[in-house]
Amino acid sequence: MIETEGLTKFFGDFEAVHNVNLSVPPGTVLAILGPNGAGKTTTIRMLTSILAPTSGWAKVAGYDVVKDAARVRASVGVLTEQHGLYERMRGLEYLDFFGRIYHLPPNVRQARAEQLMIRFGLGDAFGKRVGEYSKGMKQKLALVRSLLHDPPVLLLDEPTSAMDPQSAKLVRDAIIELRQDKRTIILTTHNLTEAEALADNIGVIRRGRIVAYGDMASLATRFVGPPLMELKTSQPLNGLAKDLAPLVKVVENGENWLRYEASNPAEINPQVLRRVLGLGIDVITLSQLTQTLEDVYLQIVEEDEGQEKQSHERAVQ
């Protein structure tokens, strides 16, 4: 479980993170999205008790990040922005070193390191020097390091960056598995498709502020409007758009197709279908147009930029 309230961090005069409020229950994944320098890494570092918040508080796995810093760090597995591996060490030796730090008994750390390396396709690289690993292998080894002590909370900074599609899928599957295992997971990523696939909730951070927070559906409704339906028919829809106006908001239409907003598709779509079929028009398809996280994200960024511009203009005046 991760909870924060009013989490703020200043570096000198610069406010890196402002008033971040999060609540991530066990068994859920929160994806934090945002451009470089938005405050994602600083937030993760505060949740790892590496940086102390300037104000506000955060609890990770039930421990306060300031008062119980060491316990927080014992309870989280962190995949840092840069994997930060010791290149002269061998894969297993590296994990053994971290296993010792977490006081895992020798047999446990050996077995666990081997299991995890095999799980992530590093079975052939036990004795290889880390410096000889490929970028993706290094990333996977860093991920194994973060899982080694079986932490209840995982903070993953760009977990699949530098990975080939097959390895990335391995990691995504592992994240899904860990979520099912009731782990609390926060991941930061620039890969919006990945965030959409993995996250229960999404937080968009810009200039240190969480500008949008919620599940994909609520964010989509808030920022790009209700779900968009597309109706395709075999005959021309002469005047149908006007007929449907009291029922739905038609946003676009052509000769034998139209698109409308349906805030509650389960209720509205049957009525639309009844009306169309009642007019003797054959329906080819009625489908929901996909609103991708990319659409939502870009809309959020656009709105935020607009607000920023307005406040800047006000300040100038």
């Binding site: 666990r112 995890l116 799980r119």
Partner: peptide, 17 residues
């Protein structure tokens, strides 16, 4: 227990014992 989970969390709890 799969490869991702184990009983190592007990050892973490005894870290500060």
């Amino acid at each position: 227990m799969n490869a991702l989970s184990s009983d190592t969390s007990d050892h973490v709890q005894t870290y500060f014992g």
